[in-house]
Design a protein around this nucleic acid. Structure first.
Lengths: 303, 303
DNA sequence: GCTCGCCCCAAGGTCCGCTTATGCTCGAAG
DNA sequence: CTTCGAGCATAAGCGGACCTTGGGGCGAGC
């Protein structure tokens, strides 16, 4: 087995013409070079250098090795270069999966920061809801998944939470759920409302998990909400509320990027917080580009 | 510094999909693979593999390394293959320099044997006299030099002999010097003649060294030969003797391949022997093709 | 003739890598 | 649900490889 290190030494010997000069160039002692050449000749099975008095000459086998060494070492340094580029964030690709309302505000800011800091990296974005997005993460279809959870759920669905215990969970931000009523509603001007205050209203729910959570909270308040519509499209929710078809609770984040015409927000009591987190696999968290992107997502809180 | 051995292991891991399978394929234990991959990841500075439950997947850096590994390992095996071909005598080139009379008989037999045994090798032949041929050997212009010496010279030219003491001297054959007289000469029928018997004759001498040797031998016999012609072309010597222009002594070997028309040979007393040797450099004697050719030259004695 | 540079050789110490042994996790089968 | 097997990680132990230091021989140049 010929080692690349030996080829490097052989080339240095060939270029400089002596073991001592090669040793100086390589930063080691002359016997080290001598021994390496002996080892290389042994693994080659034939002499490679002929020591004729003053100068070092190559045998035919030595010439063949030096000829190949150029390409081999070039390939090796190219590989090192590419890996170093990825490790040094001058290259690298991150595939990010986000739930829809995260894409609109948080993700663009993080993407912009990432591009500004590391222009060589590429971040792609796909939208998907958990648990589909978590499945994609496990399947290797993405490196980072944005998800959210309701920490205050009283052990309602431990299975869903347990799905993440082997993942790296990076908190990104916490946003409050606020109530949403038509501007003609009796509570439109109220600063705060309790869930029970909306017990008799028709409700517009969000995605399946948000819907489950809504039901739990309302039941905690003593009633079961009548849900007339359910959609994970937040502008649609706002539109439905604005049309007077019901009331809803939405994360503050989801309201930021949408004009909420014809609706009013009210703070809800009790205050429910939704935690948005970035998920990744433990090994992927060590990948520089992934790590950097996780940092940008967490840093985008300022917006 | 990425090592080729690590790339080999990485590729095996990628192909087989597990450390254990790669270890079996590589003929080592699983912890060895595990440690090598850890070392490779450390020298790469970034994770290369993600262990996601059952299967092993590559990170982007891992993909880059595997992609480069193909070319690097291919170049490495190509280099090993070429060196092995040279070492295994399936390839290789030997440049042989011979003195003129050696070329005619001994060299062709050795060349034929070499080609028969190792068809992949190539032997080139150039004619030159020593000391020019020895100089070529030292300059790297050839691998083997055929030369001859007169062992019985009584310390006449120790310098010339000393020239070889750092070389590998491989005896090839010993041939006798025989007298050559015109067929009309008074000694033409004699079985044996002494040098003194030819004291008054005009002499035809050979190459400079042969000429010097002739003078020494004759002076040992009590006279100084009158040399009318000197040429290193043996057929020319024979022609001159045949034309009655003088007498000569020639190696038996030189007579074998020439029709000696009009001349007669006589054994000379004292019997002088010329030793034909193959010379090479100590390092070159280890080169398989050179070694093989040296053997064929020594084995060509049978002819 | 002397000195300097270069190479080889031998000995010592250090470090690396492999192996054995063990524990842990996960997935599949009963 | 439990058990079993496969696979990976880790620790200890050991053998070997590598490099360094020190000494010697040899050829070249002043």
């Amino acid at each position: 087995m010929i080692e690349a290190r030996h080829l490097r030494v052989l080339r240095a010997v060939h270029r400089t013409g002596s073991f001592s000069a090669a040793a100086r160039e390589l930063g080691c002692t002359q016997p080290a070079v001598s021994q390496q050449m002996k080892a290389l000749e042994q693994s080659a099975g034939t002499p490679l250098l002929i020591r004729t008095g003053r100068e070092m000459r190559l045998t035919q086998a030595g010439e063949a090795l030096v000829r190949h060494a150029t390409g081999i070492l070039a390939g090796l340094t190219a590989a090192e270069e590419e890996v170093a580029a990825i490790a040094g964030l001058r290259a690298g690709r991150v595939r990010l999966v986000s739930f829809p309302s995260g894409s609109s505000t948080l993700v663009p800011a993080a993407l912009a920061a990432m591009r500004a800091d590391h222009p060589g990296t590429r971040v792609s974005l796909v939208e998907a809801e958990p648990p589909r997005s978590v499945e994609m993460l496990r399947n290797g279809d993405c490196e980072i998944t944005l998800a959210f959870r309701y920490p205050e759920v009283r052990g309602a669905d431990p299975a869903a939470e347990a799905e993440w215990d082997d993942l790296v969970v990076r908190p990104v931000l916490v946003d409050r759920l606020v109530g949403l009523v038509p501007e003609t509603h009796r509570l439109a001007g109220a600063g705060t409302a309790g869930y029970a205050d909306l017990a008799g209203e028709p409700w517009i729910a969000g995605c399946p998990r948000c819907r489950r959570h809504l039901v739990e909270v309302c039941e905690g308040a003593g009633f079961t909400p009548r849900i007339d519509f359910a959609t994970d499209d937040y502008p649609a929710v706002i539109g439905l509320v604005g049309a007077g078809l019901g009331v809803a609770v939405l994360p503050e984040l989801a309201l930021e990027s949408v004009r909420h015409k014809g609706v009013r927000t009210v703070a809800m009591e009790p205050c429910v917080q939704r935690e948005v987190v970035a998920l990744t696999l433990p090994d992927l968290a060590q990948v520089p580009a992934v790590e950097a992107m996780l940092g940008r997502l967490a840093g985008a809180v300022g917006d």
